[in-house]
Design a protein around this nucleic acid. Sequence first.
DNA 1: GCATATTGGTTTCAAAACGCAACCGATTGG
DNA 2: CCAATCGGTTGCGTTTTGAAACCAATATGC
Lengths: 173, 173
Amino acid sequence: MKKSHKNYCPVAGMLNIVGDRWIWLILREAFYGTTRFSEFERNIGLAKNLLADRLAFLVDEGILEKRDVGDRGTRYAYQLTPKGTSLETTLIAMHQWGLEHLYEDGLVPIEILERETGKPIKTMRLESQSGRALNMSDLSIQAGPSASKATRARFSEVPTNEPQFANSNSDKD
Amino acid sequence: MKKSHKNYCPVAGMLNIVGDRWIWLILREAFYGTTRFSEFERNIGLAKNLLADRLAFLVDEGILEKRDVGDRGTRYAYQLTPKGTSLETTLIAMHQWGLEHLYEDGLVPIEILERETGKPIKTMRLESQSGRALNMSDLSIQAGPSASKATRARFSEVPTNEPQFANSNSDKD
DNA sequence: GCATATTGGTTTCAAAACGCAACCGATTGG
DNA sequence: CCAATCGGTTGCGTTTTGAAACCAATATGC
């Protein structure tokens, strides 16, 4: 688990913590309710040594919490902290992208439903403060108030901040 | 770039494609408007051979499109396809998580604004179809209509489908 | 209460991936 | 026409991965 990227970028900084495929499977399991070392191992199929590394790392980063739940010690439960729980939006966005692009004919192998109504939750979408649907081409990405010199230089190179796409798909609304 | 995970899970399947930290930095750049090999190289700081591998892979997966933009051939532009563009929700969710957890006192190194109003976009959130804010504990995750036997077995193990959290933070609304 | 299985790891080792540097042909700029 | 840039490829030493063996402490079956 090396942390190679500079974190003047929130995405790069986040990738230093959760930029690993196994970590997302661990988090998925944690969201499903898995708490025990052996359950993670069984459900993910990850080698013990790598699982141990990843779990220790996530605990260290404050994403998971390791609690001793043995009657006389040495049985552990790994549970999401609030910081870990707030990864839910990213995880669900990933799930929804997978559902849309990985299966044919709208086949659904795993459902995410609102417990109360039994209906699927809303597909995540970019929105303005007023609730208008947006896509990337509606956005302006720029150096923020606390941007470093490097970030400022990087973003002033492209004065329009206009993302380019292969197809203008602004008809998606 | 190996694809090791089974894709009966949308998250695992997605990780087979974008489960690599470098790939997300490439995608971030693509969303910023970067199109050229040398620009990706400069802005990300990734070795040429690895960048070439990742770009070819993303083209192969239909996330990026490689167009020849040279006057007499051999100058290329890599641009997001619609499939790639639809990763925007995940990328923005990552950006927002990073902003919230990586910096002190609400410092903002990079801003994502609605171009039209200049205001920050809305923070992404789980919502019911009716627009009610949800968190993971409001959800029921279960085998879907097209679930494999293994998936069905996996989810019937936990009849309640009740995610467990270290802290009950249902007070976040 | 004794044997056996399970939990939660650590260690070892070969294979794969990484990352750096050198090289290279085609193209573009001056 | 000469130099610089673009978009790579190749080689090579280092790091990480993933499978397997091993292990102490606890829990379970009888």
